Amino acid sequence: MLPNSNLLVSRIWDFCKRSSVDGGNIRIRTPIGQQCDWKGYKAVRLHNLQAIAASFGGK
Rank of each mutant, 00 (worst) to 15 (best):
A54I: 09
S10M: 08
R11A: 09
G40E: 10
A53Y: 12
R27K: 09
D14F: 10
N4P: 01
Q35T: 05
N6F: 06
G33Q: 11
I32Q: 13
L2I: 14
N4L: 01
K39Y: 09
W38D: 14
L49Q: 05
Y41V: 10
F15Y: 11
L8V: 13
Q50E: 07
S5V: 00
C16I: 06
F56Q: 07
Y41N: 07
P31M: 03
T30I: 07
G23Q: 07
L49H: 08
R29Q: 11
G33I: 13
A54E: 10
N6G: 05
I28L: 15
I28G: 07
S20E: 11
R45D: 00
C36T: 05
M1Y: 03
K17P: 00
I12M: 05
I12A: 04
L46R: 02
Q34M: 12
I12V: 08
G40S: 15
C36Y: 01
N6P: 00
L7M: 03
K39A: 13
K17Q: 12
A51P: 02
D14L: 14
F56W: 15
Q35W: 01
P31Y: 03
Q50I: 00
F15M: 12
Y41F: 15
L46I: 10
C36R: 02
F56A: 12
S20F: 06
S19H: 12
D22G: 05
G24V: 03
R11L: 11
L8D: 06
V21M: 15
C36K: 03
N4F: 00
G23L: 03
K17W: 00
G57H: 13
T30A: 10
S19A: 14
Q50V: 02
D14E: 15
F15D: 06
C16W: 00
N4D: 03
N25F: 06
H47Y: 13
G58C: 08
R18Y: 15
I28Y: 11
I12T: 02
L49A: 10
K42H: 15
N48Y: 02
G24P: 01
W13L: 14
R27D: 01
C36A: 07
L49C: 06
K17H: 09
P3F: 01
N4E: 04
G23K: 07
P3G: 00
N48E: 03
G58V: 06
W13Q: 09
R11I: 04
A51F: 11
L8M: 11
K17C: 08
A43S: 14
W13E: 10
D22I: 03
T30V: 15
T30R: 13
I32D: 14
L2R: 15
S5Q: 02
R27T: 06
G40F: 04
D22H: 04
L2S: 13
R18E: 15
N4Y: 01
V9H: 05
S55P: 00
G24H: 04
A53K: 08
K59G: 09
R11D: 04
S5I: 03
A54T: 08
W38F: 15
Q34E: 10
Q50F: 04
A51I: 12
A54V: 07
G58K: 11
H47Q: 12
W13M: 14
L8E: 06
V9G: 04
L8I: 14
S20T: 08
N48T: 00
R27E: 04
K17V: 07
S55N: 13
G58A: 12
L8H: 14
Q50P: 00
V9R: 06
